[in-house]
């Protein structure tokens, strides 16, 4: 199967799973709103009837933080705690749903009811969690070896990060180009579990590496293409969200709708990676 066909079939499989993706989106939305709404109320309480909130209209004016006094410390603590909570719960939720998605993409036929999706998500959760943790550990070590050690060594030897700056940039590019390898192994391993029903994590990892070795360039380029497109999309989305400052009530609502629509597309694109890997190892 050609690379293009793999990507095309993957995209089609992801698109046909829209109900599952919408379910994931709703879950993330509920989770983030559950933390975000109290934060918004806290912010409103801090400003009360003050018009100083105008200073937040055109980006966040850091100068206002001193006026907020101790309330600012409370706000930062709440945001930090909320971020950690969402990060942790979100990790489990995405790992959980990945179980259902891989099951969906490893099936020969198209459909998977929502109830089946949830059932297979639950069934695959523990091995998927183990694979996610192992691969994150491996990627962390890979990152440290490729970029952390040279930076530390450069600092020790030259006493200046500038002396090793170009080498570090080069290593970062190598790191980014190597990342699809680990993502492919993670996806292929999970696909193996979803397809076979086995719970053996290390055998799954072995299957992942085997799949990579068998058609390395096809596998690698599949993930690299999807990751690159994802990266560009994410950067564009974050830039758009960061620079937009809707000022009226309706535009704020439209901003919310637009950003959520774009996030749904982002979820489709992540599912596209899963589906493309499943296509590639068929």
């Amino acid at each position: 199967m050609s690379l293009f066909k793999t990507l095309k079939n993957g995209a089609a499989a992801a698109a046909s799973s829209y109900k599952l993706i919408l379910l994931i989106w709703v879950t993330t939305l509920v989770l983030t709103l559950a933390v975000g709404y109290p934060l918004r109320s806290f912010l409103n309480m801090i400003f009360g009837n003050s018009m100083a909130v105008e200073r937040l209209n055109d980006g966040f004016d850091l100068g206002i933080t001193g006026d907020l006094g101790k309330s600012f410390g409370g706000l930062i603590a709440s945001v930090s705690a909320g971020t950690m909570l969402i990060g942790l719960v979100g990790f489990f939720i995405m790992t959980f749903f990945a179980g259902g998605l891989f099951r969906r993409f490893s099936l020969a036929w198209g459909g998977l009811k929502v109830s089946d999706f949830l059932r297979t998500s639950a069934g695959n959760f523990i091995p998927f969690l183990k694979i996610a943790l192992l691969l994150m550990l491996i990627i962390g070590a890979y990152t440290f070896i490729l970029t952390g050690i040279p930076i530390i060594a450069g600092l020790i030897v030259s006493g200046s990060p500038g002396q090793t700056g170009n080498i570090i940039y080069g290593l970062f590019v190598i790191w980014a180009l190597g990342l699809p390898v680990w993502l492919f192994v993670a996806d292929a391993s999970r696909r193996w579990i979803a397809a076979t029903g086995s719970r053996k994590v290390f055998r799954a990892l072995g299957a992942g590496f085997r799949a990579l070795r068998m058609r390395f360039w096809h596998s690698y380029l599949t993930v690299l293409a999807v990751v690159l497109i994802n990266a560009v999309f994410i950067l564009a989305l974050m830039w758009l969200a960061g620079t937009s400052t809707p000022e009226k009530g309706i535009t704020v609502f439209l901003f919310f709708v637009a950003t959520q629509a774009l996030f749904i597309i982002r979820l489709f694109m992540k599912a596209w990676r899963y589906a493309s890997v499943c296509e590639a190892v068929k």
Partner: peptide
């Protein structure tokens, strides 16, 4: 800010 926070958190977990 809530809208941006929600999107940022969603992006983080994805």
């Amino acid at each position: 800010m809530l809208n941006k926070f929600v999107l940022l958190m969603q992006m983080m977990i994805s």
